[in-house]
């Protein structure tokens, strides 16, 4: 098979199927990961907790994980002085 045959093959198959494949992947990825609100959520959480306990930004971790149809929002807050039951986890399940 010469190089000319290869280009003929690509032209026959067409680039549209490649476009569709790439789009399906990127769109699925972006739909699942719309986490624009995470930094703001983190900031507001610090403000609320800060009302009661003195903490700083480095002591709170906010993460969002996806598995199938379920999203898990994990909050990891370390209180100063003592560690409260290792970590406090809040699981929020939302339908994607």
């Amino acid at each position: 098979m010469s190089i000319f045959d290869y280009f003929r093959f690509v032209r026959q198959k067409g680039s549209a199927s490649l476009a569709k494949e790439r789009l399906q992947i990127i769109v699925a990825h972006e739909r699942g990961k719309n986490t624009d609100y995470l930094p703001l959520l983190q900031k507001e959480l610090i403000a609320v907790i800060g009302k009661y306990v003195a903490i700083d930004a480095s002591q709170i971790k906010v993460e969002l994980e996806h598995s199938g149809d379920c999203s898990i929002l994990e909050l990891n807050i370390t209180l100063p002085g003592q560690t409260i039951s290792a970590s406090q986890k809040a699981d929020v399940a939302t339908a994607d």
């Binding site: 026959q12 067409g14 680039s15 549209a16 476009a19 569709k20 789009l23």
Partner: peptide, 11 residues
């Protein structure tokens, strides 16, 4: 679209 160069309506 017929030539496979463009995404189709269904795509």
């Amino acid at each position: 679209v017929t030539r496979g160069e463009m995404l189709s309506v269904t795509d």
